[in-house]
Design a protein around this nucleic acid. Structure first.
Lengths: 336, 336
DNA sequence: ACCAGAATTTAGATCGTTCTAAATTGGAGG
DNA sequence: CCTCCAATTTAGAACGATCTAAATTCTGGT
């Protein structure tokens, strides 16, 4: 087993001091051009790798960030993840990924683990039921944090998210434009800021347009759950002519359930989803949805974190991505 | 800014030496019960966090593994990822995630970055076109590696994957059982072991069952590409009565394209996918698919890596997950 | 040739841990 | 009370980098 190549070793071969090699590694302008060249040559020859862990010990920057998501099966989060990764790679940082499974205890454990690994900062999509006290703890730990997609302790940290109030508004206004009056909302049982925001958006849009709230039905966040909720939606006192759904997965499940109940989505009842995941194009009928571009949110979150890592005391900032309505066939036939 | 709590500090407060605290942290049986208790109390009081980076510097184990995937939008990979993460969390390791975007150069850069961060090992889903020489490089670097889902240099490293030969076989046999004779295969353009394996499986299954190869059509790995390939499939010399698809995304796209061409999947032509992603349940008609349980593959890959990290010189091992046919409505009506 | 000041280079301490080898403590047996 | 051995505890040197402050080498101007 050949021994590890260290700064020391490179220095010896290049005939300079450790400190000089260190400067070269960090691309300091202090070192003379010809020395730099020689050292770089030697580094290449010896296949030297800069040990970032050792460096962090001294200078306190691990070029590492933690990312905590509540879930890895929903492609909304994975697209988000993809956006984060892209920016971090560009920034030459590495992403430590962890899945909280929407469990605050697990989330705590993950944060401790990340702390132990010396991450420079964390992007957090808070687990359902997270105690807002967590933010103070992070502050005490001096761990820079950006929240995303879900927010606890509104406005206390940087935040990147989508404008779901506007998103639901787009959906409702679209339906009203088509002539709908009685609109239902298919929500979820999980208590997150994501849910609250959409409900607020729904109420607001109804008031704005004068449409009638045909009822809010809750389902677990799976397509099966949504399929089962179809019956409950069809049984609402004032039967809705259109349904806005918490997200595309629920919308897809709902359409399945509706069709099983003999009610054809897009003809007998209109359905609109939120998020515009790829699957929205593959359902039958293709699903009208409001695009939330999770990858762009991921990019925004990553940029917010980079900014904060570079400028310690920067003011708290929010990046809210504007949603966009994407018309497909689950809604759109003009009504009477 | 309160100064960082270190072993030294804990030792001072507890009235013991640094070394003793270190032993407590690592749960060594050497330390006396009452000392251990006192030290643990102090650690809790001071909110001490074990600096794993510093530890690694001395003992060479970072409790960190790298995971490289070629893609983060395909939910096959994210379920895989989810499985890996679960095992690693249990094992108290942290996952460094990176996306190679199927680009070998980027993949190289990622490996260098991981090396700099001192990962204990890597799980690699090799990018398309990766030079098999890479394996030797990794060996020289002394970096333990497990390949998964895609394999370069067959049999040279641990590998976890699905049995796509058998998977395609299940699909074909199912179709033949239904009475199909002329079966086409919708493949992809990307040159990976994943593709080769399926083509082998297709050829083998045809021979086995005596069914006729109605043609192999290639599409880019997107549902749009697959939709466009529908026309080409319908125009094959010997028009197929059933199509087996590279994966569910292509199958879903294909069904869309077929329907646009006035050909109803599940009635006029049967379609079978591979992978059984969640979306297979949401397409119309619901897609018959062969379940590859990517999360289980992820679990297997993670376990292989753990094993290797614990036992340096272990023999090379392969974990091949058995596929399972899931019947839905895109195939199944008995033919003449 | 000499000197000030800029441009480079460097020695040595330090980051927070673990390792090695040795020191200390405590009991049992004589 | 002393000896010996096992059970604990510890001092001090690593690990591979960066920082500080000081030393050295270059300049050009006189």
């Amino acid at each position: 087993m050949p021994k590890k190549i260290t700064l020391q070793e490179v220095a010896r071969v290049a005939g300079v001091s450790r400190a000089t090699v260190s400067l070269v590694v960090r691309k300091s302008p202090l070192v003379a051009a010809h020395t730099r060249e020689k050292v770089e040559q030697v580094m290449a020859d010896l296949d030297y790798v800069h040990d970032i862990g050792a460096a962090r010990l001294r200078n306190n920057s691990s070029r590492t960030v933690g990312l905590i998501v509540p879930n890895l099966v929903n492609s909304f989060f994975t697209e988000f993840l993809s956006g984060v990764d892209r920016v971090m790679e560009q920034d030459d940082r590495v992403v430590l990924l962890a899945n909280s499974h929407d469990d605050p205890a697990r989330q705590d454990a993950i944060l401790q683990r990340f702390r132990g690994h010396g991450v420079d900062g964390v992007i957090l999509c808070a687990a359902e039921g997270t105690d807002p006290e967590l933010l103070h703890k992070l502050q005490r730990w001096n761990l820079p944090i950006v929240q995303s997609l879900r927010e606890i302790g509104k406005g206390q940290t940087d935040y990147a998210g989508a404008d779901y109030i506007e998103g639901v508004g787009l959906a409702v206004r679209h339906l009203v434009d088509l002539g709908h009056h009685r609109i239902a909302f298919l929500s979820v049982t999980a208590l997150t800021s994501a849910r609250e925001e959409r409900l607020v958006g729904f109420a607001k849009a109804l008031k704005q347009t004068g449409a009638e709230d045909a009822g809010i039905v809750e389902a677990p966040l799976t397509w099966e759950g949504a399929a089962q909720s179809a019956a409950r939606i069809l049984a609402l006192d004032s039967r809705p002519t259109a349904v806005v759904c918490f997200n595309d997965v629920l919308a897809a499940g709902l359409m399945l359930g509706l069709r099983q109940a003999g009610c054809e989505p897009g003809r007998d009842i209109d359905v609109v989803g939120l998020d515009d995941l790829p699957l929205a194009q593959l359902t039958y009928p293709p699903l009208t949805s409001v695009a939330m571009t999770p990858d762009r949110i991921g990019v925004a979150a990553a940029q917010l974190l980079s900014r904060r890592l570079n400028a310690e005391g920067a003011a708290i900032e929010r990046a809210i991505i504007k949603p966009q309505l994407v018309l497909r066939e689950s809604s759109g036939r003009k009504l009477g």
